[in-house]
Design a protein around this nucleic acid. Structure first.
Lengths: 242, 242
DNA sequence: CAAAAACGAGAGCACTGCTCTTGCGCGGGA
DNA sequence: TCCCGCGCAAGAGCAGTGCTCTCGTTTTTG
């Protein structure tokens, strides 16, 4: 069979998983900087050199953890989105953003691993890309649905950005207006600014009651990408002349 | 005299500065994780244990570098702002944002040190606070000027955020409307989301021509805090019905 | 069944942060 | 002016790290 060509192959899968699990444990407990191969091996009752048969270096272990973290975040967001799939685009948007925030608060060190500063001269390998784009794809899908439905509000682009905006749209979502794609990418980045500031303590003594603050900010991001229709009971989030 | 109570005291100041300079060099070259006390000492021609007379631990050295980085960023922003002090609020806003981005691109590892994931279970000590708030104070000042001038557009707050918004305004800028303070804090965090995503490679293959993209996004942040008046030659940045 | 590949164990290298002890030399008080 | 003390540098040492290499053993494969 291909799934179990031998006891050896199965054992390898199990040991690999055990290493990742223990590494994730240490990552969650102490952070990426204190993640030690030797400590992982020790905890698993093996000698440290044996671990190198499974992960050729510490960075490779970290890469595996990064992919898993992206997948875990993506899964959490997709699960939350599925529960409100029938709702309006704006509520779906805020739900996905809130799910990302909740995941980050629950897995701070894993979040720091993927969206914080990259570890020592580390460059994300290509294989992280698909896992990394899951949340982004979710957001694009929501905006696309709104575009095909009631339509989107648009913000005109400055002249100097038009060609780049066209390129971005062609790459990410050719069916969406370029202005919307630009706003989408910016909102996507800004979302992680909000989450990161909360997580890394920048909001200490600044924002105390963070859940409603975040929901409001996420709603305004939705507004920025053109989702201007308020849900029943919500405020629109658009600026009114004072 | 109090400035030079002896050759001893002066030497201490000089050595402390030399340590910080060399540490900053290594930080810029290799990143915070590879900053080594022993390497700093080696480069300075002293033995590693001698360095502990000046900084009791590696974290203390990092803290000093963090404060310096905040100050350097704040200074760059203030300098840029001073050059356009006579311009309209929106241009001043975008200028400060752009200065922050430029500083980050020029000092990636120092930026990562202060706005990336905090190092190993590290919590920022209280003495970093004043240096850390310089850019924020600049932004508040710009919005305040606009508020006293032509006024600001406002976005209504949801009911659940009103009390927290009042608290935030009382703490940060009692003379500004609470809605504006909320938008200001959110935009402040979102600004660093934009910068971080660019710096940490999240925009690879997504945004290529980043300068105009950033300027546009910063302009929309200005719009979000109520600075809706476009400069001559700029687009307003507000959504129009499609 | 034999050759080959995969694997675990152990020793070892070069490095890290940090502590402790030892001895030297400058500086302020008598 | 002398002299004692304190600030300082130096060195050894501890515990830990990532990683490499070798050496038997075990399992898979041709």
């Amino acid at each position: 069979m291909s799934t179990a060509r031998g006891a050896r192959a199965r054992a390898r899968i199990e040991v690999t998983a055990a290493i990742k699990d223990e590494a994730r444990r240490q990552l969650a407990a102490e952070g990426a900087a204190k993640l030690s191969l030797r400590a992982v091996a020790r905890e698993l009752g093996m000698v440290s050199s044996a671990l190198y048969r499974y992960f050729p270096s510490r960075d490779d272990l970290l890469t595996a953890l990064i992919i898993d973290a992206y997948d875990s975040l993506g899964e959490a967001a997709e699960f939350a989105h599925a529960e409100v799939a029938a709702a309006g685009p704006r509520e779906r948007w805020v739900t996905v953003c809130t799910a990302a925030r909740r995941w980050a608060l629950g897995h701070p060190h894993e979040y720091a691993l993927i969206y914080g500063s990259p570890v020592p001269g580390y460059v994300a390998p290509q294989e992280t890309v698909p896992a990394a784009s899951r949340v982004g794809l979710l957001l694009i899908g929501i905006v696309r649905d709104a575009h095909r439905g009631r339509g989107l509000a648009r913000t005109p682009l400055p002249a100097g950005l038009k060609t780049e905006a066209g390129r971005m749209a062609a790459e990410l979502a050719p069916d969406l207006p370029a202005e919307v794609v630009v706003a989408l990418v910016a909102s996507w980045a800004q979302l992680y600014g909000l989450i990161g500031f909360e997580l890394f303590g920048q909001f200490n003594k600044v924002v105390e009651d963070r859940e409603p603050f975040f929901r409001h900010a996420a709603g305004r991001l939705a507004h920025d990408v053109g989702l201007v229709y308020p849900e029943p009971g919500e405020t629109a989030g658009g600026p009114h002349s004072a």
